[in-house]
């Protein structure tokens, strides 16, 4: 049984070969189509042209680094501020039934509004530049952690909650020892969503402002009909998106360690060692 599971989870060499063959066939037919003029080069640049563009924007010209630095800095700032605000407010609202009741209609209305639509308004209100961009990212980052924290806090186990209260736990203790640990997986799911939307948020902000950053770069390349470079930028974003996805997964495993076998064993062993050391210390004393 375990062997069987292992066999299906590990891709076989044969399958990898087929994966690779399909990929290669797709790329080759694309290249051929572009070279033979079956595909409009202006719209579907050849893979070789995209590779050349990669070389140019990363190495020989190296102009993407500056824009990447700007955009990712904004994403980091906006995401940090927005998600901290979201989790904090979510916890406060979730713990207090009255606040929750009065806020609910507004939350429903806000959830139906496409948040990113507020972008022009924020730019007009806060002016061009980094401030309005960070505000847009904060806004799109805020909601998923807020809602997820809220639902994580509300859906806390009633029996456990009552047990802790009857044993005289304070509100802070309930929050730290019961509510947050139970809500963490849900909160992390919200953070993952938020980081992805932060990337979209910075792109929209840059599409509108058209000054600098990766979104502006894509827009400029497309305007100049330099499609190969535009595709190279988009594949860069694919890579960033993939790294974000994997990174958040790793983080999720570390923080909510009790959700997976390996993490549980790791933290358990560490605690056992600490306990043994403490016992040893006591015995010596």
């Amino acid at each position: 049984m375990t062997d069987n599971v292992k066999a299906t989870s590990q891709p076989k060499t044969g399958q990898m070969v087929i994966h690779f063959t399909i990929f290669l066939a797709l790329i080759l037919s694309w290249e051929l189509g572009a070279q033979m003029g079956w595909l409009d080069k202006l719209f579907f640049p050849a893979p070789s042209a995209i590779l050349t563009s990669f070389w140019r924007i990363y190495v020989s010209q190296g102009n993407i680094w500056f824009h990447l630095y700007i955009s990712l800095g904004l994403v980091f700032a906006g995401f940090t501020a927005g998600s901290i605000l979201g989790v904090g407010l979510g916890a406060v609202v979730g713990m207090n039934a009255t606040v929750r009741r009065f806020l609910q209609p507004y939350v429903i209305v806000l959830e139906a509004t496409p948040r990113i639509a507020v972008a022009p308004l924020l730019i007009a209100a806060l002016g061009f530049g980094a401030t309005s961009k960070i505000a847009i990212i904060m806004l799109v980052c805020f909601f998923a952690p807020f809602i997820n924290t809220l639902s994580g806090v509300i859906n806390v186990d009633r029996d456990r909650f009552e047990l802790m209260r009857s044993l005289g736990a304070s509100k802070i203790q309930v929050l730290r020892k019961l509510v947050l640990p139970e809500a963490v997986p849900v909160i992390m799911a919200g953070e993952r969503l938020a980081l992805t939307s932060a990337l979209s948020g910075v792109l929209v902000a840059e599409f509108i402002q058209r000054d600098q950053g990766i979104g502006t770069l894509i827009l400029t390349y497309t305007r100049n009909l330099n499609m190969a470079s535009a595709f190279a930028c988009i594949f860069t974003l694919t890579l960033i998106g993939f790294l974000i996805f994997k990174g958040m997964e790793r983080l999720d495993h570390r923080i909510a360690y009790w959700k997976n076998e390996a993490g549980l064993r790791r933290v358990g062993a560490k605690r056992a060692r600490a306990w043994a050391a403490e016992q040893g210390g006591l015995a010596r004393a």
Binding site: T196, M227, F231, F242
Partner: peptide, 26 residues
């Protein structure tokens, strides 16, 4: 499913918004 899923994953991790200028050109 096995041979389509990698492309779906690539599409997923790419912020779709990034395609806006290209889609407008198309």
């Amino acid at each position: 499913g096995r041979y389509v899923s990698p492309y779906a994953v690539v599409l997923n991790v790419t912020p779709g918004i990034a395609l806006t200028p290209i889609i407008i050109a198309w």
